[in-house]
């Protein structure tokens, strides 16, 4: 883990304004930004720990705990609400047995809210990992969960 952190720092420390790039790199490698990363980044980039932590906590995307195997980012914004995204959100919570921002007990799924995926003419939309799905009905949601998320 520390290797991944140090590698991310080494790769980007010479760029101008590198902190977000470093955090992205760490989260891409580990799925989250572990607490151990904060002092290492702070020392390398000559920032205070509070500054580094302040940045991590400012951005909704960065997380400080490991996520489930798959992250489902469900759009809660207006254009998806217009096509009953709220019922889909309730269905997702029920089906997974968790709320937004939580991970299932078996560690398979994390459910997160996002605000617009740029797919507003094909809602309701969600991302599974980096794969976008549109016009997702509750039935389709179940298929996606069961079928490892491949496109129709």
């Amino acid at each position: 883990m520390n290797e991944a952190i140090d590698a991310a720092i080494a790769r980007h420390r010479d760029r101008p304004g590198p902190l977000l790039v470093v955090l992205h790199d760490i989260q891409a490698a580990l799925g989250y930004v572990p607490p151990e990363a904060v002092p290492r980044i702070a020392a390398a980039l000559r920032l205070s720990r509070a500054e580094v932590h302040g940045v991590i906590s400012f951005y909704h995307y960065f997380r400080e705990r490991p996520p489930g195997a798959r992250t489902i980012r469900l759009c809660r914004a207006e254009a998806c609400q217009a096509v009953h995204g709220d019922s889909l959100a309730r269905h997702a919570e029920q089906r997974l047995g968790i709320g937004f921002g939580e991970t299932t007990a078996d560690g398979r799924h994390t459910l997160e809210a996002v605000y617009c995926l740029g797919n507003c003419a094909c809602g309701p939309s969600l991302l599974i990992g980096e794969e976008l799905h549109g016009r997702v009905t509750p039935e389709r949601f179940d298929e996606l969960l069961d079928g490892a998320g491949s496109a129709p």
Binding site: G17, P18, L19, L23, H24, F58, Y59, Y61, V114, Y115
Partner: peptide
């Protein structure tokens, strides 16, 4: 990194510089 406010131009510049 998932912050709507970073579309506001000065917020975006702060973010590009690696800050909140």
């Amino acid at each position: 990194a998932g912050a709507y406010i970073c579309g506001e131009e000065t917020s975006m510049l702060e973010s590009l510089e690696g800050r909140r």
